[in-house]
Amino acid sequence: MLAFWMQYRVKLNQAIDDMAWALFQRIYQFFFDSGRSLIFFIESTKLIFTKPYRVEEIIKHMEFIGNKSILIISLTGAFTGMALSFQIYLGFNLVNATNLVGPTVALGISRELGPVLTGLIVAARAGGAMAARIGTMRVTEQIDALQVMGINAKQFLVSPRIVAAFITMPLLCGVFDFVAMLGAHVLGIYVLGLDEAIFWDKILLWIKPSDVFEGLIKAAVFGVTFATICTFKGYTTSGGAKGVGEATNQGVVHSMVMIIILNFFMTNFIRFYLAVING
């Protein structure tokens, strides 16, 4: 019995060691890739300001990131706004503070849920497509073909996507905020029976333009983040169709994790910054 237990314990220890080592490797790889993505971002950003300017490409990618995401963003926004207002109503009803449902929903949406959910959804939809597209171009030698034609492949493929995401994401976040507030309004007024005048009056009283801008700035940063990570993963793809699949998967997962982490730090940074400038 003891011998069996000893043998079992050795195997268990080995399994725990393996798991810890695998976890360490994954964390190490995450930070290593993040560093390489940052260098890639700096190189690509420099190329935005060098001739030839890729305005046509930027507009094309804005259409892809923005226009084609509006429906899913609106749908998510509407249901998020409704769900949030319902949950907040349930909580505030206990302390008889339903007057504050409107501003609380608005704060939550504009500062946190709007940019974060927009970032996650667009990273999955457009970011995944970016990684897959550029990855396919890499493994089918299309990127080599661009370089051999004397065209800077990074300037042609990466920089316009980063600019397009930077411009488009705040707009999408604005759409998300607007539709989410509409959803909250519909549920709050017509289903939960809140007073319409109080709902909007309190929002106008408590919500400052800086709250909305905070969300829009975050959205722009998240756009740059997922565009950089996904294009980087695509650009460095190797190993045929399997490699493209892995690059797409890693690009999306890495972007999502980074958006969540960045959101925390940006919230603190922006609050600190506002506190400083407001004395």
Binding site: T140, E141, Q142, A145, M149, G150
Partner: peptide, 23 residues
Amino acid sequence: SPDEMGRFRRRLGVLFQHAALFD
């Protein structure tokens, strides 16, 4: 430099193994 290389490569033409056409 990368810029020089870009300009220089215009003097070369390549037919890749699978043509590498932009799809």
